[in-house]
Amino acid sequence: MLRKTFETELQQVKDNVLFLGSLVEQAILDSVEALKKRDMDASRRIMEADREINARRFAIENQVMVLIATQQPMAHDLRLLASILEIAGELERMGDYAKGIAKINILMGEQPLLKPLIDLPRMAQKDADMLHRALTAFLDEDVETARAIPQEDDEVDALYNQIYRELITFILQDPTTIERANWLLWAAHNLERVADRVTNICERTIFIATGEMAELDGAANGEENA
């Protein structure tokens, strides 16, 4: 096969995307776990770790730019590299959502949680799971999986709506809970957005594999809910 060097470099970029993905996945799970346990130190560590996520995103961007400038990628290679720019951005934004949840934990200070967290960890678990499979599909250019994952966005949306209704009930019963309810609502909203961005990654995967640029359902619904 010709272009062995280029192949190797493409593989390296993909590996870097996967590594970034795993950092983000962990950050999402950890941020909710820290919130659940009200562990401020853990939240501070998550905020700190977000710098690495940002730095890695820039490194990937830079790597892609250099490959575009020096290797003149065409067709599939071009679609892959252009999509990686996009995916790295999505991952970085997901990292920001995790950081946002960590920040909520710190802002809540000594106030107790409004209620024990049950649905939020489930949302986080679902997000992490979807992200993980989306990145595997990206790596394998598995179009079928990439088309299937956004369907699951509905589950995340359902959990979000459930949390929303629950928190509204708290506020209606006792308006003094409004601030604490709002914090949890924000956390839920962040987790809901993560799933939308997973959908974007799936769209890119399909584009890389087929050249077809299509909006998948999950994303469209997500945007409307936002």
Partner: peptide, 19 residues
């Protein structure tokens, strides 16, 4: 042709994997 060729051989040629 240069972003999404339909033919596998075109793809291989323009991405430099021909031959």
């Amino acid at each position: 042709i240069f972003t999404s060729p339909r033919d596998r051989r075109t793809e291989d040629y323009i991405t430099g994997r021909f031959g």
